[in-house]
């Protein structure tokens, strides 16, 4: 039995000021899948993500969402000095009426996900005073507080050091394995794909892309092709684990 995709992108084309940015992108994301998107800077990863989230209406084609979306933008900063709890609480937006403020139940949901993301101790700190890694976890807690079924993250690991990258990636894996959350994220590190993803989308240019399972699509040849830099497969020498890295180091 084939289950209907929770997120379906059909022949999506986006134009901006007469210039075509994306053309003919089609892919399905099944429930419980984790999709990693890779591609060079400026290839349109954020544009495609915005179409999936619904922030952008593609000029051609369609995006069908069969579940609530939680969106974690790249490096979010707040203009005002809101506390961490305030920020997570705002994830409740879609469950509130036009004229209502969050109630006790909403606070409980926010606190629960702060707890789950292990950032409860930061609840009263100003959001902008947090480190990049902590901020990312708070934004994930916000998306969870919105009770999303699909979480879409725009480069959740950019500008993070190795430790924080590992924390964010481990968090995504935990959310997928334990809660069955469907996740779509963009990244520049193929290893992130290997660590959490079930599927990969390689965006070569505005109309050429490869989409499939990690095993069949995430290969050294495809990555070399994608980035136009020689990329090789590197073994860690334990348990058959490996990663992909540029081979320009002699």
């Amino acid at each position: 039995m084939i289950e209907a995709p929770i997120l379906a992108v059909r022949d999506v084309g986006v134009s901006l000021g007469g210039r075509t940015i994306l053309e003919g992108y089609s892919l399905d994301v099944g429930k419980g899948e984790v999709l990693a998107m890779l591609g060079a800077n400026g290839v349109g990863k954020t544009t495609l993500l915005n179409c999936m989230v619904g922030l952008r209406h593609p000029e051609r084609g369609s995006v069908t969402r069969m579940g609530r979306i939680g969106y974690v933008p790249q490096l979010f900063q707040s203009t005002f000095a809101f506390s961490v709890l305030d920020i997570v609480l705002m994830g409740r937006a879609r469950h509130l009426g036009l004229f209502t403020a969050p109630r006790k139940a909403d606070y409980e949901v926010a606190e629960r996900y702060l707890e789950l993301m292990q950032v409860a101790h930061l609840r009263d700190r100003p959001f902008n005073a947090l480190s990049g890694g902590q901020r990312q976890l708070v934004m994930i807690a916000q998306a969870l507080a919105s009770e999303c079924e699909i979480m879409i993250l725009d480069e959740p690991c950019s500008a993070l050091d190795y430790k924080n990258q590992a924390i964010v990636i481990a968090t995504l894996r935990r959310l997928n394995r334990e809660m069955g959350l469907t996740i779509v994220f963009s990244t520049h590190a193929p290893q992130h794909g290997l660590e959490v993803a079930s599927h990969v989308l390689l965006m070569n240019d505005r109309q050429r892309y490869r989409h499939g399972s990690v095993a069949e699509v995430l290969t050294a040849d495809n990555l070399t092709n994608l980035y136009d830099v020689a990329i090789g497969r590197a073994e860690f020498g334990m348990g058959g684990r490996f990663t992909f890295a540029p081979t320009y180091v002699q």
Partner: peptide, 14 residues
């Protein structure tokens, strides 16, 4: 409050 996070963020939050 929600809009003061920015229009894009507010829209994504529904």
């Amino acid at each position: 409050n929600i809009l003061s996070l920015g229009e894009e963020k507010a829209r994504a939050l529904g």
